[in-house]
Each structure stands twice: as C-alpha cells, then as structure tokens.
C-alpha cells in the first residue's frame, strides 16, 4: 500500500498550484445540487464556495486520502472572498499545510489555501481541517 502524503508531509508543505477554473457545466451541476426557489441569481458569476470545494478535491487527492482503508472526516472549513468570480474565469489555488498532528492514531491536518486570478491578485482564502483514520502505523 502506498504511504499517503499526509503520513509524511510536514507543516509548510506546499500544494499546487491547482487550476480550479469552474466551467459552465460544473456551475450548472452546482445549481442542480444546491439550487431552489430561494437561490440567489448569480448571473455569470459563481458561488465562491464551489471554487473552494474544487480546490479541496485536489488537496484530498494530493494528500493520498482516496487510498483504500483511509477514512477522512471534514471537520472544519473557513473561507473568505474578496470579489465575485465569473464562470470560466481562470483561478489558481495554492495550498500550504498549516498543521499536521497525530492524536490517538488519527491525523489532524489543516491546509490553508490562497486563490489568485490571472493577474496574480489574491481573490480568496480558505482553511480546511480534516481528520484521517484507518492509517497503518
């Protein structure tokens, strides 16, 4: 079994950058998943939390958390956004392992992510805390 990155990565480890551009079909899928009569009209922009979710998917894969036998709990999430993002607008996400500790056999990891547009300007941030169990020691 391949050793997942979460077992070896130290605080400060960098992830990405990932291209988390959201095309129209994924924005439509988001509307189908989340939307209802109460939903706001986003026009040609995205719900920023979808960009955060796209980056989280990349991070989880990068950390090796899709490895067989591991169970991951998404314990906490922070996000902030400076401006709306348009559907199809190029967004890069770059992560940094902010914490990674082992308690009672479970990994507790926090990854901070910065989102930048095509000019390099930061347009959002997020921080994800996960708990991973089932790892062979």
């Amino acid at each position: 079994m391949t050793v997942p990155l979460i077992s070896t990565a130290v605080v400060g480890h960098e992830f990405g950058p990932y291209d988390v551009t959201i095309p129209a079909e994924r924005a439509s899928a988001y509307a189908a998943a989340v939307g209802g009569d109460e939903s706001p009209d986003y026009g040609d922009t995205l719900a920023p939390i979808l960009v955060v979710a796209a980056a989280l998917t990349e991070l989880i894969e990068n950390l090796g958390l899709f490895s067989g036998g591991l169970q991951t709990i998404h314990a906490g999430q922070e996000a902030s956004w400076a401006r709306p993002v348009k559907i199809g607008e190029r967004v890069n996400a770059k992560g940094r392992l902010a914490a990674n500790s082992v308690r009672r056999g479970n990994h507790f990891a926090t990854v901070a992510v910065s989102y930048t547009d095509s000019t390099g300007a930061e347009i959002g941030t997020s921080s994800t805390t996960i708990i991973v169990s089932g790892e062979e020691s």
Partner: peptide
C-alpha cells in the same frame, strides 16, 4: 441522492 450526485459533478469529489 440526485443532489449529491450533482454536487459530485460540480465539485469533482467522487469519493
């Protein structure tokens, strides 16, 4: 489950 399936497509999280 249809919403969950759609969210997997949107987010890319097919866990």
């Amino acid at each position: 489950q249809e919403r969950v399936d759609a969210y997997a497509e949107a987010s890319g999280d097919h866990n």
